[in-house]
Design a protein around this nucleic acid. Structure first.
Lengths: 340, 340
DNA sequence: CTGAAAGCGCTAACAA
DNA sequence: TTGTTAGCGCTTTCAG
């Protein structure tokens, strides 16, 4: 059982042609029930395993989906990947996952490798840095389905799956305003990534609607790495007019900042009301519990997986590049509630 | 540029043989510098891309590493995967990641698929359920490197990478004892998984060393799903002799339990001292901050990746199936400190 | 250093 | 329903 068995070996042993063996093993319609049974059962007992290299070469497809994410170890992203994997697995697709680590160059390299590896489809969540999208062109040229999720950009005929960030940003901000905030700071991710840009726009929309003024001081742009919380703190302390509310573009930074603020004796929500984004598990553990926007990573992954697989199976006509807006949800906890 | 270019096309265009093109593209030693240069540069300009299906078939290897984990969306596991991916990526290996979702059957299926997909190596963290290891035999037979990490079991000649769970369990427990605890509960994962079994043994070692008695009440076995915290709470409340310390086999459950205990008016660490396991980010956010054992997921991933790649590149002689014990570390925070 | 040619193992169009 | 026969595109001996 050490040498590998091929369909030729099976064919010889059973006195049929390799083609018949192949048909039997692939549930091809035109084969008699009996020979099929005979072949399949013999294949099993002999320990035959298909050689996918050969099958892939012959079919020019791999049953493999490539995924590129900025980093796979964030609660949101690992939830999304988990959802994608589950769906893919159920449909017998393998997942090749790679990280861009927020670098455009790595993203390009990964895209190239995945293309060369012959993935049947590619799912991408963009790196912070990426501004140029040439590396995805080849997928389009070769008609390999391409889907963007969470951190997306406009790409003709490519489905995107994410939430309505502008509306979510609006909802978060308006909530703070309704709690009485007049001078709100928005701590944003890099604005060139339009997930963040849209949250910021929603923020401005809400200020505008409620006739609150917006100055450059009301925005602080960062990579949202919680380790850099001190810079946010500095910005907060240096502002002439004290902020009475902060809307963070993610929970991790919000939590880090709450801890820093509490250490300085600031009272939350009394002095400053705070809302985050994502509904990261920590938001229910920090004291006070963090209000946030629920952005369901796992569900997003499942939907993204289903979408791409429908594509691959031809259940969706390609041109109707369907984009999906997931529902977000405002979750009000104590960090943002006025104490009346 | 729509039709795919093969080495035959290049060969024809340049008046050389396909073999020469192949050699040029693969840095084969026996080829003249000039023809190589000529071929490589033409290949570039013509937009040639290798067809890995064919290369894999011919070489019977794929530059792909398979990974099976219980679930990929836990902080620990996603850190580990991130480390593995980084190393793999640097060495031009692709990673196919799949989840067993704690099911032995799925694990078997995944192993089969990955084998059929022709992975060059397999890395596994075992599902809760798995008790039978036949599905890995084929890898051994075919001399495909196999490595277990975190949730491992004994498998002849297979490297394993993890921490010394017994010692870590001992350290955690002894710490509680040194803080004055006399009746300590251990909330364990499933004991058939020996990561947990060993933590439990370390727990007993410490009790024994310090002459504390151990009764079945001092152990509560669970799947560590924080949603099931109520059962743990029940156990705690039903115990005749009140516990004054709890050692949790993971932080997620510890945190859930702390929240439940606080809600009941229990004071931590005054009434009950608590220590967790993993150094999950939440441990620094919960009030009181959770003492724990640091189990560095990312570093583990990096080491595991390096180990398997050394194997693949033949830098390590196969039989010295080197196992690595990562250093763990006791992290003392407020949840376990006696108030003297 | 280069070329010819034989695979790698499977699939699929065409014939029978 | 089954068999024959070309590929799929690359690698690699073996000659030259």
């Amino acid at each position: 059982m050490d040498k590998k068995i091929t369909i030729y070996d099976l064919a010889e042993a059973l006195n049929v042609s390799p083609a018949t063996v192949s048909r039997a093993l692939n549930n091809h319609p035109s084969i008699s029930f009996n020979t099929k049974k005979r072949i399949v059962s013999y294949a099993q007992s002999s320990g035959y395993r298909i050689n996918k290299f050969a099958a892939n070469l012959s079919k020019q497809k791999s049953n493999t989906i490539g995924v590129i994410v900025p980093k796979l170890n964030s609660p949101f992203m690992s939830d999304a990947l988990s959802g994608i994997e589950k769906v893919a697995n159920e449909h017998n697709y393998n997942l090749i996952i790679s990280q861009s680590l927020e670098s455009e160059q790595k993203e390009k390299l990964n895209a190239k490798t995945l293309y060369d590896s012959g993935v049947d489809a590619l799912m991408v969540s963009l790196a912070y840095e990426t501004t140029n999208y040439e590396h995805f062109e080849i997928f389009r040229e070769q008609k390999i389905p391409l889907l963007f999720f969470d951190r997306v950009d406009y790409f003709p005929n490519c489905p995107t799956i994410l939430i309505d960030n502008r509306q979510a940003g609006f909802d978060a901000t308006e909530h703070l305003i309704q709690q009485g905030c007049k001078n709100i700071l928005h701590v944003s991710g890099y604005l060139k990534r339009n997930a963040y840009n849209n949250r910021f726009n929603g923020f401005k929309d809400a200020l505008y609607k409620h006739k609150l003024k917006f100055t450059p001081y009301n925005l602080y742009e960062t990579d949202l790495d919680p380790k850099k919380v001190e810079f946010v703190m500095e910005h907060i302390k240096n502002s002439k007019e004290k902020f009475d509310g902060i809307f963070f573009a993610n929970d991790a930074m919000a939590v880090a900042c709450i801890q820093a603020l509490l250490k300085e004796g600031v009272q939350i929500p009394k002095d400053i009301k705070i809302i985050g984004f994502n509904n990261n598990p920590v938001s229910e553990i920090i004291q006070p519990n963090l209000s946030t926007i629920n952005y369901p990573g796992y569900e997003l992954g499942v939907l993204a997986g289903q979408s791409i697989i429908s594509h691959l199976k031809g259940n969706i006509n390609i041109q109707s590049a369907e984009s999906i807006l997931l529902k977000h949800e405002l979750i009000v906890r104590t960090s943002s509630i006025s104490n009346k």
